[in-house]
Amino acid sequence: MSRTSRSVPVDSAHRRRRSAARTRVAAVGLVLVTGFALAGCSDSKAGAAATVGGDRIEISTLNAKVDKLEQAFTRNNLSLAGTSAQLEANQAELVQLISRRVVDEAARRNHVALNATQVLQARRALEARLGSPEALQVRLLQTGVLPGEVDEFVRTEALKREIAKARGIQLDSAEAQAQLNGYLSDVASSMKITVNPRYGAWDSAKLSTTPATYSWLAAGTQPAAPGLVEVPPGAESGT
């Protein structure tokens, strides 16, 4: 009995030491994760995924969009699996957020705007072209546009066409599209856009981001550079 009674404190102390060790390991892991999350924020304040003309796009806003995108992919039996895919989704969603602000600024400078009726008409035209509202949602979802953001996508694409008209650009060829993109690039260059290096670097000439690279990802699995979200083929005549 005496031996047993002496062994109890020893076991308790051992458990406490093991518990303390696990706590230290967990704390170190948290520091490492937090360090990665906040790494490379010199060009943007901590908490900002990007700044556009002084306006912040919060990391929390971007993360919420990607979470909703993953949920929408799951509901539609689409795949958004793996670290590289998640990183690509983050960059692509950020490009959308930035590009919308660029188009809005270009529209303001050219004194063009769209009302709700015009946006609805443009959306109905796209839905008719693709066969149904659901078909449009699925088509755009595959390019990273959430179902709840279809109107915003349609408005942005329609604004591009109105900007082109205001500048005398007829969007009937690849050269004309390049001319419009060149103008939007000039607008973007004047807006002081910076991106948190965690998501790459902003390239005004391409209206996109160059992909971030991560040493802990194997070669060949780095995220690809996100492209512009374009209106479905043939939809330019929708408005």
Rank of each mutant, 00 (worst) to 15 (best):
A81T: 14
E58Y: 10
R22F: 00
K68Q: 15
L120A: 15
A107H: 02
A49H: 07
L78Y: 12
N181W: 13
T4G: 14
I193C: 02
L62R: 06
A92G: 15
A218N: 13
I169P: 14
H14T: 06
D151N: 11
W202S: 01
G238D: 07
N196F: 00
A219W: 11
A72I: 02
L140H: 01
V31C: 10
T74D: 13
S208A: 08
D43T: 12
D151I: 02
H14D: 05
W202N: 01
S84H: 01
V52F: 03
T143C: 06
V28C: 05
N115Y: 07
K206F: 05
S7Y: 04
T34D: 14
R18C: 01
A116R: 13
A27V: 01
D43H: 09
A106V: 11
L136K: 09
T209K: 05
S190H: 09
L171R: 07
C41T: 13
S237Y: 00
T74C: 05
E236W: 08
R139D: 12
C41A: 15
Q71C: 03
P9T: 02
P197E: 00
S2K: 14
R16A: 01
K165A: 03
S99R: 15
N63A: 15
P147S: 00
P9C: 03
I98G: 06
I57W: 04
R101H: 04
A92K: 12
K206T: 04
A39Q: 11
W202G: 02
A39K: 08
Q177H: 03
A218L: 12
A107G: 01
L228H: 10
T213D: 02
R155D: 04
I169E: 10
L69R: 03
G40F: 05
V28K: 04
I193D: 01
A125N: 10
D203F: 11
V229Y: 08
F73P: 14
L171D: 06
F153T: 11
S60I: 08
G54Y: 00
T221A: 05
G168K: 07
I169V: 10
S5T: 12
G238M: 04
I98P: 13
F73M: 12
T83D: 10
T156N: 09
I59V: 15
A164Y: 00
